[in-house]
Amino acid sequence: MFKGRVLKFGDNVNTDEIIPAIYLDTISPSDLAKHCMEGIDPEFPKKVKKGDIIVAMKNFGCGSSREHAPLAIKTLGISCVVACSFARIFYRNAINIGLPILESPGAAEETKEGDWLEIDIEKGTIRNARLDRIYNTIPFPTFMQKIIDAGGLMEYVKEKVRREDV
């Protein structure tokens, strides 16, 4: 269960905005987090409190395959990203590194900056406290749920490698 304050974004937030390429000369998660969302709002890292939730409209994370984007968001302390839809590689990367993301067009459209959301990942529901409204999220396919349950792709692969060794 995640509870957090909403930071709202629009359509087509791209990975160049989430983490400009000029900062891709490092793989240090904390250095990347310092520049999270700099392409849209250079003050963003200062505004974020641990547990905050990003809510965006359609095609969040479009553009480059840089995993530095979900990594910067996760490291900054964002608990979850909710959007109408996600770009494919970002979606995959978030699942692989264990950044919780949820597709819910209803919640994304009606939620505003500063709202308070309560997210029950297991039930797949999002409650907007201001509107006192509950939204369903689009459930993960079984295969992806296995990766999420393992704690990300590397944990999933580690288990497979270990089993094959045995």
Partner: peptide, 20 residues
């Protein structure tokens, strides 16, 4: 198709990748 770094790491180790 393009993927992220973690997918690449898994493929470098196992030669295998998951797809829909």
């Amino acid at each position: 198709t393009g993927v992220g770094s973690t997918d690449l790491a898994a493929v470098m180790a196992t030669g295998r990748c998951w797809f829909k």
